[in-house]
Design a protein around this nucleic acid. Structure first.
Lengths: 115, 115
DNA sequence: TCCATTGTTCGAATAGTATCAAAATATATG
DNA sequence: CATATATTTTGATACTATTCGAACAATGGA
């Protein structure tokens, strides 16, 4: 991931509604949630929600899958992973910058080892 | 860190010039670089650079320290760390989202253990 | 086919952001 | 104090983003 690409993704997440949408989709898991439910849950008008969903889709943070009349949106973890890797590699270089993240990852690793 | 705060920091980093400035400051280390040198290095006009430096300072990503006529800017690793922790905790919850980050952290840990 | 439902796209108003020249501020030095 | 240097602030302008009502498109059922 280059700087321009990273900036685009960061910018997409740099809006309260879009960040909330992404968090909601992460919480929802791989089945996803349909557009209407997202708007209802976060109190965003349909047209506005659609605008933000399109934006998040464009930068690859989420994806939509049509299921009859509904479109189920779900998080694209790869893009978020790439972003975190970019920040970790390029924005903490050589610095003592990762105590909290290391702690979190230790938990993640333990969970993986257990499952 | 709450969603609003995280969105502000993400938005601040979501601009190519500001992301480049932050990366440059991370590279530069704790001594920092003065405003003029930052602008020169990234080919940004003084007034524009000052605008972006003020923005990054406002959200706590960098700090400036006057040194005679120069102002030395340096990265605030804590804020970046908090941001990465937020993304790791809130935007990858329960998902297999961290292979690349875990790998990076393993390297970090090894480096720490060696030093 | 007709209608209800779900979601997107369009259009227009509004608000916010980025850029840079010029003026202002701060510091150092002769 | 006058001048040079480093940076910020101001003000004008251009650009981009956000919001939402209304129109449109797609799907499924009576």
């Amino acid at each position: 991931m280059d700087t321009l690409n990273a900036a685009e993704i960061l910018s997409a997440l740099g809006h309260e509604s879009r960040l909330s949408i992404f968090r909601l989709l992460v919480e929802a898991g791989p089945e996803g949630i349909n557009a209407g439910a997202i708007g209802e849950r976060l109190e965003i008008q349909p047209a506005t929600a659609s605008f933000h969903l399109a934006h998040l889709t464009r930068v690859g943070l989420i994806k939509g899958k049509r299921e009859s009349r509904f479109i189920h949106y779900s998080a694209n973890y790869e893009t978020m992973d790439d972003l975190i890797a970019f920040l970790t590699n390029n924005c903490c270089q050589g610095a003592s910058c990762l105590p909290k993240t290391v702690e979190v990852n230790s938990v993640t690793k333990r969970r993986r080892a257990a499952s």
